[in-house]
Simulated assay, not measured.
Amino acid sequence: MRKTKVYYRGCLIGGAIGDALGWPVEFMSLEEIKSKYGNRGISSLVIGRRGRAEVTDDTQMTLFTAEGLLRGETRGYNKGVSETGKCVYNAYLRWLYTQGDPADDTLNIYDGYLIKQKELYVKRAPGMTCLTALRNREMGTVDNPLNDSKGCGCVMRVAPVGLFYRPQFAFNKGMECSAITHGHIIGHLSAGAFAYIIASIMSGMDIAHSVEDTLIELSKYYNSEEMVDLLKKAINLSMGKKSNEVCIKELGQGWIAEEAIAIAVFCALRYKDDFEGAIMAAVNHSGDSDSTGAMTGNIVGAHLGLNKIPRKWTSKLELYDVITKVADDLLTGYSDDGDWWMKYPGY
């Protein structure tokens, strides 16, 4: 079992580091990356104007997902009605507010811990599907989708679901969180699968067995065949001798959900005991480098724990204290000590 701070922090900090490493090269081709950073590609965090390596909407929305989960469970205890999906949706509206959109005066939701963190009030190329869906002020669900999008914005934010729920619940909760803004079933399944992988790792499995169990769970769902095949391809490529660049190109660019999770699974399996190697592989390609970096960091960070993430990266990371606090709160929320909701009234 990995129900300790070091692994919860490892998951969220690992994701943030992958996000920060990939952010400067997100819209660059591999050739452009190598031209600017050398043949190995980008390998060091770029320090921004605030003196820290910057994270993007991937980390921001991951934090707000966690806040929504915590509020949902708090509401369930205090009022007897959970409505976790609605609470995550409201958390995403608070994220939208940090992106410069006006508050909706008809909603009494603009409070809590994260909305007070000024470092979150910055736009780092947020996904248009997330922005558009939330601006419409309508919450999507699996049964009532808002659109037909399966952009990776629906999957890069759901690692907290895997930290908060046991595997048997994480898949469906991941799908629910995805459907709030993205309507395509493959996006929902990708988010469910990613949450399931994280939850399985936290239950004590290694990465390989977590992915294998996820494939079994995924195969129970209608229209999952193409995604199952892509993940199996990622597994096979991770065990082969082809270069990272060639393998990732075969899996896609990561702009859509199933490609993003496939790339993350490939990198995490190939470098399961090497956080630095996994992250570097995940961001140095011609695609959505910050999202594939973030998801890879979530997986390998959950597996290895914070202590195995290089200090040269954690010491430079934006929002480090906020991320670790949220990770700790997710851990406390998972426990059965009976009083966690009293400790975090800000949620």
Rank of each mutant, 00 (worst) to 15 (best):
Y113Q: 00
Y113R: 02
Y113V: 05
L114G: 01
L114F: 02
L114P: 01
L114A: 03
I115K: 04
K116L: 08
K116D: 10
Q117F: 00
Q117I: 15
Q117E: 14
K118F: 01
K118G: 03
E119V: 04
E119K: 14
L120M: 14
L120H: 09
Y121W: 14
Y121G: 00
V122R: 15
V122C: 01
V122K: 14
V122P: 01
K123I: 12
K123C: 08
K123E: 09
K123L: 05
R124V: 10
R124E: 05
R124H: 11
R124M: 09
R124W: 05
R124N: 07
A125P: 03
P126M: 12
P126F: 12
M128R: 13
M128E: 09
T129M: 05
T129C: 07
T129Q: 03
T129V: 15
T129R: 01
C130D: 10
C130S: 15
C130T: 12
C130E: 03
L131A: 02
L131D: 01
L131V: 15
T132F: 06
T132L: 09
T132K: 12
T132I: 08
T132D: 11
A133H: 04
A133R: 04
A133G: 04
L134D: 00
L134K: 05
L134W: 06
L134M: 11
L134S: 03
L134C: 05
R135S: 09
R135F: 02
R135V: 03
N136A: 14
R137F: 12
R137E: 01
R137M: 13
E138C: 12
E138L: 13
E138H: 13
E138Y: 10
M139I: 13
M139T: 09
M139Y: 09
G140I: 11
G140E: 04
G140H: 11
T141F: 06
V142C: 11
V142P: 06
V142G: 01
D143Q: 13
D143R: 07
D143P: 03
D143C: 05
D143M: 08
D143L: 12
N144E: 14
N144L: 09
N144Y: 14
N144T: 13
P145G: 06
P145R: 09
P145S: 06
L146N: 14
